[in-house]
């Protein structure tokens, strides 16, 4: 799964310097690197990671950057709230999620149509995968900056990317029209798992991050 290329002709209300963009990318690399190590231990397989990308887009284009608007995908959304507001959003194709569940547990699933039909065990396995990835992502950033970042229990969705992005956009666009998304693609060839980890900080949190890292 790859993110589509950035869209042109957009008015961004946030302007970041090349140093700022690079440092956010580097945070994405560190966070996703840690998350991927944890994932690789969980499934006991090699995980391939792409370089981290960063995009600043108006909130209504959030869903456009993901491929495949029509089919249903899994979204695992871990929010960190309080002093710092950020989200770690994980997107997996439905097949990827089924393969992942089947490979790390005794359960064997053929297909999933909706979240409500999942039994408690399957649901908690998915939550736990989300928790492990988001937790490692956040804690590596927290360590780096000397702050506390503890993700809430993740919420799950199985729907089109547009519908999933609505909730994320709603969370971050009350005050601004731009969303910063720092994304890393992950792939586990042996298990046919394909996904994207996105780190979405609020504008206020970005400012705090730049202050802490002494980036102007």
């Amino acid at each position: 799964m790859k993110l589509n290329e950035g869209l042109e002709g957009v008015n961004n209300s946030i302007k970041l310097s090349p140093e700022q963009l690079d440092s956010l990318k580097e945070l994405g690399n560190i966070g996703s690197g840690n998350a991927v190590v944890a994932l690789s231990e969980l499934v006991n397989k090699r995980v391939e990671v792409s370089l981290t990308g960063i995009k600043i887009i108006p909130f209504w284009e959030l869903n456009n950057i993901f491929p495949d608007q029509e089919t249903n995908i899994f979204g695992i959304c871990s929010n960190i709230t309080g002093k710092h507001n950020l989200t770690v959003l994980q997107i997996f194709t439905k097949e990827s999620m089924i393969n992942m569940i089947n490979s790390i547990s005794e359960i064997s699933i053929d297909d999933i149509h909706e979240i409500e039909e999942l039994d408690d065990l399957t649901r908690s396995i998915i939550s736990e995968i989300g928790n492990i990835l988001a937790g490692h992502y956040a804690s590596s950033l927290a360590n780096l900056m000397g702050i506390k970042l503890i993700p809430n229990v993740p919420v799950l969705a199985l729907d089109s990317i547009g519908a999933i992005c609505n909730s994320v956009a709603a969370n971050y666009s009350e005050l601004t029209d731009s969303i910063i998304i720092i994304n890393t693609n992950i792939k586990i060839e042996e298990l046919s798992i394909d996904g994207i980890i996105c780190f979405i900080p609020s504008i206020d949190t970005i400012k705090i991050i730049f202050d802490l890292l002494k980036i102007k």
Binding site: G75, C77, N79, I115, E116, N152, V153, V155, L156, A157, D159, A163, I164, N166, S167, A170, N171
Partner: peptide, 12 residues
């Protein structure tokens, strides 16, 4: 106005 995520954090 659907609730897409289970245990939705907000009821937007």
């Amino acid at each position: 106005g659907a609730t897409i995520f289970d245990n939705e954090f907000n009821c937007i």
